[in-house]
């Protein structure tokens, strides 16, 4: 790359970064400000940080909500990655006419707005409550069950599997590995970055999921983070400083997940496995 192009890359990335970071930065600044300064959009750090943190912990039970959201997001991520990658791999590597039809039908499931599925789903969980109350209405399990596989993830894994060299599968079969052996020992480790990307996205979506947990979870001790933040902003005179503090604290887990996962995005992954 020429020097000019290099400079261009840095300048472009820096501008993009600044634009991207700006609201996040403001969020950080706002947690140190009084409510009134937040509504004024103040860009200057204030002295209210400790006060805001203290008020936050006094007014809401943020720790149990973090634990609930954490459980839901972790379980969802692990199960969704496993189930969806099995399926994505299966659809691509064991291609058949019938499976392709099924695949196309599955894609339909991400095309319908979730809002209209809620009433039938709620009714379904109402019936489940009669026989299996431990996964019925007002349980964490009910909050994550509908998200443990999504067509979105299956689609992503299938498209990624298209980039996976088929010779490696044949090589695995010659080595006497079973089909699951090939999946777990060759495909999974090779596609590490694909899993990393899927993990980031799934964790984040689950952590931020709002509509379904809102209707299915009732007890305060089952509250998740987005519901808690929604409540904080609900009054006639919300304290925006406290809200921003809550937002920053609850954004950290996703930021950390991202930061650690993106390290896997290093070049030459394929080379090292070959």
């Amino acid at each position: 790359m020429t020097k000019f192009k290099r400079i261009f890359a840095y300048v472009f990335l820096t501008i993009a970064s600044i634009i991207s970071i700006f609201p996040f930065l403001w969020m950080l600044i706002s947690m140190t400000n009084k409510s009134i300064d937040v509504t004024r959009g103040s860009m200057l750090p204030g002295t209210q940080l400790l006060e805001n943190i203290k008020n936050l912990f006094q007014t809401v039970d943020i720790v149990p909500a973090m634990v609930n959201s954490g459980i839901i997001a972790l379980v969802t991520t692990v199960l969704a990655l496993l189930i969806a990658s099995l399926a994505g791999y299966g659809f691509e590597m064991f291609k058949s006419k019938k499976k392709d039809i099924i695949f196309n039908i599955l894609l339909l499931s991400m095309m319908i707005p979730f809002a209209v599925l809620m009433v039938p789903l709620y009714r379904m969980f109402g019936s489940i409550s009669q026989v299996m109350p431990f996964i019925g209405i007002d349980t964490l399990a009910a909050a994550f069950l509908p998200t443990i596989t999504t067509a979105f993830l299956i689609f992503f894994f299938r498209q990624s599997a298209k980039m996976f060299p088929k010779e490696m599968i044949e090589a695995g079969r010659i080595d006497g590995l079973g089909e699951f052996g090939i999946f777990f020992r060759i495909f999974m480790p090779t596609m590490k970055t694909t899993y990393a990307a899927a993990a980031i996205i799934t964790f984040m979506n689950s952590w931020n999921n709002y509509l379904w947990p809102l209707v299915i979870l009732q007890s305060p001790d089952k509250q998740t983070i987005p519901l808690l933040i929604s409540n904080l902003g609900a009054g006639y005179s919300p304290d925006y400083g406290v809200i921003m503090t809550a937002i920053v604290i609850t954004t950290l887990p996703t930021a950390l997940v991202f930061f650690f996962m993106q390290k896997h995005f290093v070049e030459g992954m394929m080379g090292s496995v070959k």
Binding site: I83, A84, L86, A87, Y89, G90, F91, M93, F94, S96, K99, I102, L106, L108, S109, I112, V116, L117, V119, P120, L121, R123, M124, L145, P146, I148, T149, T150, A151, I154, G178, E179, F180, F183
Partner: peptide
């Protein structure tokens, strides 16, 4: 045998999505 295994790969996902998406979708 490989073909049968292939079906197993996609089975769980298909069942889960049918249950939590297609069943409510039909009702919708």
């Amino acid at each position: 045998k490989i073909n049968a295994t292939g079906w197993f790969f996609i089975a769980i996902a298909t069942v889960v999505i049918t249950l939590f998406y297609f069943y409510p979708m039909a009702q919708a």
